[in-house]
Nucleic acid binder design. Sequence first.
DNA 1: TATTAACACGAAACCGTTTTCGCTGCCCTT
DNA 2: AAGGGCAGCGAAAACGGTTTCGTGTTAATA
Lengths: 338, 338
Amino acid sequence: MKRRVTLKHIAKELDVSVSTVSKALKNSEEISRETKEKIQAFAKLYNYRPNNIALSLKNKKTKNIGVIIPDIVHHFFTTVFRGIEHYAGERGYNVMICVSDESFEKEVLNMELLANGSIDGIIMSLSAETQERNDFNHLQEIMDQGIPMVLFDRVSDEVACDKVILNDIEIAFEAVETMINSGKRKIALVTTESYFNVSSDRAQGYEKALISNDLQLEKNLVLTLPYESEDEIPIWEFFESNEIDAVLCVNEIFAIKCMDVVQRQGKKVPEDISFIGFTNGILSRYSTPKLSTVAQHGERMGETAAKLLIDRIENDLEGNYKTEVISATLIHRDSTIN
Amino acid sequence: MKRRVTLKHIAKELDVSVSTVSKALKNSEEISRETKEKIQAFAKLYNYRPNNIALSLKNKKTKNIGVIIPDIVHHFFTTVFRGIEHYAGERGYNVMICVSDESFEKEVLNMELLANGSIDGIIMSLSAETQERNDFNHLQEIMDQGIPMVLFDRVSDEVACDKVILNDIEIAFEAVETMINSGKRKIALVTTESYFNVSSDRAQGYEKALISNDLQLEKNLVLTLPYESEDEIPIWEFFESNEIDAVLCVNEIFAIKCMDVVQRQGKKVPEDISFIGFTNGILSRYSTPKLSTVAQHGERMGETAAKLLIDRIENDLEGNYKTEVISATLIHRDSTIN
DNA sequence: TATTAACACGAAACCGTTTTCGCTGCCCTT
DNA sequence: AAGGGCAGCGAAAACGGTTTCGTGTTAATA
């Protein structure tokens, strides 16, 4: 119904100039006390709020940050997002969110949409397709336009910007070593395609742990699963045709599915076979047995990313890109011994 | 590094006026072919993109919609959000998202932030605190300002606007009746505080089903749990001190927790006791046994909400508020008989 | 040859703010 | 009485676009 009241309306109504109104509302010394009181009272009465769009245009600052994530229905990303949202809110920023659906094309589209002035900076995690194609021109363009950008979790060495990552190698190493120390010897890895930087890092940690404990590195103890699939057969065969007494999974779902399969095959978890998964989501807390996991501290990751971004937006940092490493922690539940 | 190129830059460089550039880029008939070609080539070369902020100011349309949800790390809300994002994207809208964290104060703050010109309309689900306080002035103010708003799932009768809800009463009725038909007689309800409209609707459906099947409506077969709590004792006692052979839970987590408790008490699911939960999330699919649930079709809910909102933004509908009802469906897994 | 229509472009207003600068009066000083 | 200083306010530019309404040039027509 009612149109929003603007400075111009107030000015006309009170028979002063727009500039006077603007100054009065900022309590400028330049304006007499009585004029200020009159204007402020009027503004309050009509619930005046400065128009953000006009401010953005004038200041060339939108106080918005854009977030592009591959999937919103995904525990890890939502926790990261929560961290971003909280931190950004504290510093007066709003968050626009786009979902790439793991698609390269949608990622590019989203970036173009956001980059047209709507946001002061971007936080993103690469889509699966982007990692597979290894094509980062769209990121480079954003950087060239001088729009600050922070990459988290799924990052790439090929683009120079601030990054927030997990110490994937170290924590995978630690996870595997924990299982070795509890007496396990035939340790498997269940992972995704290796173009995911996180998967290859975790594989690296897995291998290092085996080697440093004088264990054989066996190719057939590594199972590569498609990112999303309901097909259980490869899992079933994998655990039937190999003697395995411990498993590291690069995500929670893989771990739950594998645990389910081996239990149906008559093995006991963790006595016969231990499990550790990445992503400390709800599934881990409610599975049977409760899954031991690597907590990725998504919320802290999000906060860190937001801090890096906003710092760069507000201060001109001239390159000097930082990579912050979030330390994961191992959470022992009932799928590992001790 | 490089500043974004504007119409003014192009105009100066090509020695024409800003208006000519603007028209040329819109392929206006008014401009000669050669001039248009020259300008378009130049624009492409320097990767000109119109500034969204300037457009928003001029058109008084931002092509942004705001979404306020109580929690982002929550399966149902993320699926709704995905629906919103998809549909909005198709119609050329971006999404700004705010999280109220179930807090009244944050909800109000978020609305004020969004309402200052950043968005063309709002989609929201009420925070727990807002429902508890029963205070909707902030919603009314938004409506008074003429900003279109759509409420979903957690709605209130006290505010007149478009709404999207689930047929909670009917589906709860159906769920309970299904269990009755499989021979169950002592049917419990595990719910949250009744100021959640969805909980009270589900309770209503539960009661109606009992009554219409000539079963006793027993107060002590209703367990009210705090919204988030790790305390297991009330659950344990509830199932120990009552003879119960079937349970309807108003959310997934409650169901999983209860199933866990009764199984540790030595009862068999579903033979001794059946379970149906609301929210068809990942937990339901991977619990032991797999939980039978009410699928709320969050994605469709989100799409519907977005459609209602955008239709209202783009056409002046003058009141005539609609309430769309999404039909939930019962998914039978292993926590119910047959 | 004078009038006119079509063509191709420019000037300016506008969206809502902020901010710089300049212009009035008025009072005080000498 | 003249000049200086200051308090209080307004005009205008700027942010980056769109759009309406001229306006000058050329070619066609009477």
